[in-house]
């Protein structure tokens, strides 16, 4: 899609402020009610994680005697710490790998002229059509053959590069003027230096957008980690939470605590970098 669309979405509203009328007030109230409904599952999750077992039948949002016992109980045996660390390591490494390789490939396909460029581009783009679910069986067989089952590498390898990221970065490298690259070449920089010191800094917002998408995708990924992990220690947070909740059966306050532990970190990160993340999501969504 076009850049105008993206540029326009970041501009503040230009229309003059008019005094609020009844329609405006009604619109605000309805949207506010809708917004409260939207966050209700999240608020109930947090509220219940602070309640005693006998209180969970109580619909009150604010617990009578809020306490953190559930958190101490859930975190006590250390499983959640392990899952948290696993998820964090996997999401971080995958993000770094995508930022480096997707942009390197995007840059090459955008700025170099060579025979076969178009074929490579189409080949990579065509992998967008293949759903992950079609590949899980061959990936599993591959992991079994090479001993990758139940390892970090096994969880990570399918996502180390993505066609989506490559395409996104290629689009953004179009905005880098060729003159800059020519000038750097004349100054005697080699191609790797040009990519890293000239082109990369110019597409920093796009890199951030890609990083957000890849991180979030891997942080919440479920089906592949579920398949490739066997031991409790290797679970990622979503897989761990799923098995923990199933085990906790009807102890809903503990399930809500586990859910809160896996959700709150991303919510906090979002609240801190809100504008930045929304912009990144729009950029990735529209360009990709």
């Amino acid at each position: 899609m076009n850049t105008r669309l993206i540029a326009a979405s970041f501009k503040g509203r230009t229309a003059a402020r008019r005094p609020a009328n009844l329609g405006q007030i009604l619109r605000w109230l309805l949207l506010f009610a809708g917004g409260i409904l939207m966050v209700m599952p999240i608020t109930y999750m947090i509220s219940t994680s602070l309640k005693w077992p006998h209180e969970i039948y109580n619909l009150a949002l604010i617990p009578n005697e809020p306490h953190l016992e559930n958190y101490t109980y859930v975190l006590e045996d250390g499983r959640f710490y392990g899952w948290f660390v696993n998820s964090l390591i996997i999401a971080l490494i995958t993000t770094v790998s995508n930022v480096l390789f997707d942009s390197l490939v995007g840059y090459t396909l955008c700025k170099f002229r060579f025979a076969g460029r178009y074929i490579v581009f189409i080949a990579i783009l065509s992998t967008l059509m293949i759903p992950t679910e079609m590949l899980v069986i061959p990936w599993y067989l591959m992991s079994q053959a090479f001993g990758w089952l139940d390892t970090y590498w096994g969880i990570m390898f399918p996502g180390l590069m993505t066609a989506f990221g490559t395409f996104l970065m290629k689009q953004f490298f179009e905005t880098v003027p060729n003159d800059f690259i020519e000038a750097a070449r004349i100054d005697g920089l080699n191609e790797l230096e040009i990519w890293w010191t000239i082109a990369m800094p110019l597409v920093r917002p796009a890199l951030a957008a890609l990083a957000i998408f890849v991180f979030l995708g891997n942080w919440t990924a479920f089906i592949w980690p579920l398949i490739v992990t066997n031991s409790v220690e290797m679970y990622t947070l979503p897989v761990g939470l799923s098995s923990f909740s199933d085990e906790a059966d009807v102890q809903w306050e503990l399930i809500m605590t586990g859910a809160a532990i896996s959700t709150i970190p991303t919510l906090v990160v979002f609240l801190v970098f809100q504008r930045f993340i929304i912009r990144g999501v729009v950029m990735a969504g529209l360009k990709g």
């Binding site: 939207m38 966050v39 999750m45 479920f222 979503p238 939470l241 809500m256 859910a259 929304i278 999501v281």
Partner: peptide, 18 residues
């Protein structure tokens, strides 16, 4: 906008249990 966007930042597994 933040209220409406917040659910997108959650983990599907956690919210399925909620």
């Amino acid at each position: 906008r933040m209220l409406y966007f917040l659910p997108f930042m959650t983990t599907a597994v956690a919210m399925a249990w909620v």
